[in-house]
Amino acid sequence: MEKPAATDRIERHIVIQAPRDRVWRALSNAEEFGQWFGTDLKGQTFAPGQRVRGLVSGCGHDNVWFDAVVDRIEPQNLFSYRWHPAPIDPAVDYDQEEPTLVTFTLKDAPGQGTLLTVVESGFDKVPPQRRLEAFRMNDGGWAAQLKNIARHASQ
């Protein structure tokens, strides 16, 4: 019997050819995060409970905001935040929806590399009319963003 497809979470992994402290800095420094993620977070910092917000660039949608509340920071191990996936319709009040949780974890990999895992969970609580599209967009988005951080951190 075939296992049903997971609809509540996206999980992606990549081994980055860079030391763990370098990958951690790319994740945990808000301005540097913005550089590889494609959002302007200049002058902002990540701290638990703090909201960060910046205009997104390069995704083909005008006036889309990266808008997240930092959840947890465990230096060189875990960084997480909550946000509303695929907030592309200016007519929708996304603050009325329950956000998903994005969690990055780091582990050592052979050859001084770093295994980076990203999990976004909570899609089953996204309103049904936009759940599948948000999941589809973010599934492809995380594949691209892991390549972006790998390129950024290994320079």
Rank of each mutant, 00 (worst) to 15 (best):
V64D: 14
F33S: 03
G58C: 10
S28K: 05
G49P: 11
G60K: 03
A68H: 09
Q35K: 11
P48H: 11
F46G: 06
F46K: 10
F66M: 04
Q35R: 11
G54H: 09
N29I: 07
V69F: 11
G60N: 08
Q44N: 03
R53A: 09
F66N: 04
A68M: 15
N29K: 07
N29T: 14
F46M: 15
Q50G: 10
L27H: 01
A26L: 07
V70H: 11
G54R: 04
F33M: 03
L27K: 01
A30F: 03
E31H: 02
V69N: 13
G43D: 01
L41V: 02
F66E: 05
T39S: 05
C59I: 15
V70W: 06
G34V: 00
N29H: 15
P48L: 08
V64R: 15
G58H: 09
G34F: 00
R53N: 11
A30N: 05
G58W: 14
Q50D: 04
R51E: 09
V70N: 08
W65N: 04
G60C: 09
S57P: 06
L27A: 02
V56H: 01
S57R: 13
W65M: 08
A26H: 07
A68R: 13
A68W: 12
G58T: 12
S57W: 14
C59T: 12
L55D: 15
W36P: 07
A30T: 03
A26F: 06
A68D: 11
A47V: 05
G58F: 13
H61W: 11
R53V: 15
E32R: 01
T45S: 10
K42W: 04
W65A: 06
G58A: 09
G58I: 08
A47K: 11
V56N: 05
D67C: 09
V56L: 02
V64P: 13
D62S: 15
V69L: 15
G34D: 01
F46L: 08
S57L: 06
A26C: 15
F33I: 03
D40W: 13
D40R: 09
S57D: 11
T39A: 09
R51K: 10
R51F: 05
H61S: 08
P48S: 03
Q35Y: 07
Q50L: 07
F66S: 04
G54N: 11
Q50E: 09
D62K: 13
G58V: 13
V56R: 03
D67P: 13
Q35P: 01
G43N: 00
E32C: 00
D62I: 07
G34I: 01
W65C: 02
Q35H: 10
K42M: 04
H61M: 12
G58N: 09
Q35S: 05
G38E: 14
G43R: 00
V56D: 04
L27G: 01
P48C: 04
S57Q: 12
K42D: 08
H61Q: 10
A30I: 02
P48I: 04
W65D: 04
R51D: 09
L27V: 00
A30V: 03
S28H: 04
L55K: 14
